[in-house]
Amino acid sequence: MNKRIYYLKNIKGFVFDIQHYSIHDGPGIRTTVFLSGCPLKCLWCQNPESQELYPQLFFRYDKCIGCGECISICTQDAIKLNGNVVQTDRNLCKRCFKCIKVCPNEARTVIGKEITSGEVLEEVFSDKMFYHESNGGVTLSGGEVLLQPEFSSAILELCKSNSIHTAIETSGYGLWESMKKVLTFTDLVLFDFKHFNDDKHKKLTGVSNKVLLENAKKIWHDLKIPIIARVPVIPSCNDSILNINQTANFISTELDRSIKVHLLPYNSLGKAKYKNLEQPWNCFSGTVPSDEKMNELRNILESYGLSVKIGG
């Protein structure tokens, strides 16, 4: 069943999850590789564990029995008992992860790991028969793939040389040089558009949108790589009629009317992860957009001649 896998380059990088049978991250059945580290800090971030490049402690507070085993083994005095459960000062933590081994209830785990591009390929390649059947492939997501350009490009090159369709999911925020390197081996780009007002974009994500909009144009016009536009719909952040009109206008005129748009309704499922990372909650109080709202936005985009799908 498995053909031989070929790879020459082996570059190390950081990944926080590899998800098989991904059905909402591009065409067909895919394996999505979630790369660690992100230069953006979107208020609604669903995967806060993706923001850090290095492996970090993931704490299941509801499993902690307050036994204190972790406190005694910690060399940094980073862990304290707070009520019935422990609390870790992430600034003091040196990520030795000794505490994980002694936790009797598996309340402490590591999220993220260092892995080689070859190891990623092997994991991705194991699902080749499903890509073949469904015209699927691999999607690199994150985090932000552009933050680890050498690693991303090495994985994509290996996949391509093993005849696996490649896609990346990106905010577009990164140096063009990095982008070019990654895109050399990319068949499809899932490009996130968050907000068209630069001030708002900065406020919502922490960075300017100028670079990424330029990058989008270059990908489409210079490199001629297919794009799917992905627009997260975050109520009271980017779901204004104006913003959606601007989004539609940019995609249909600056890029191309043939580009498909995926509208992704916000969900609050990622919220609890902040607690797991013992990060202060940024007080973002997003609500789930209603079906009516989603349809309204879809109609706007469609009036620009774009084809739109709700959900990935």
């Binding site: 998800q19 669903q46 990622g270 797991n276 990935g312």
Partner: peptide
Amino acid sequence: RVAGYSAYFTVLD
């Protein structure tokens, strides 16, 4: 499984 999000149910809080 939701776009941009996927998790094993039992490990969720």
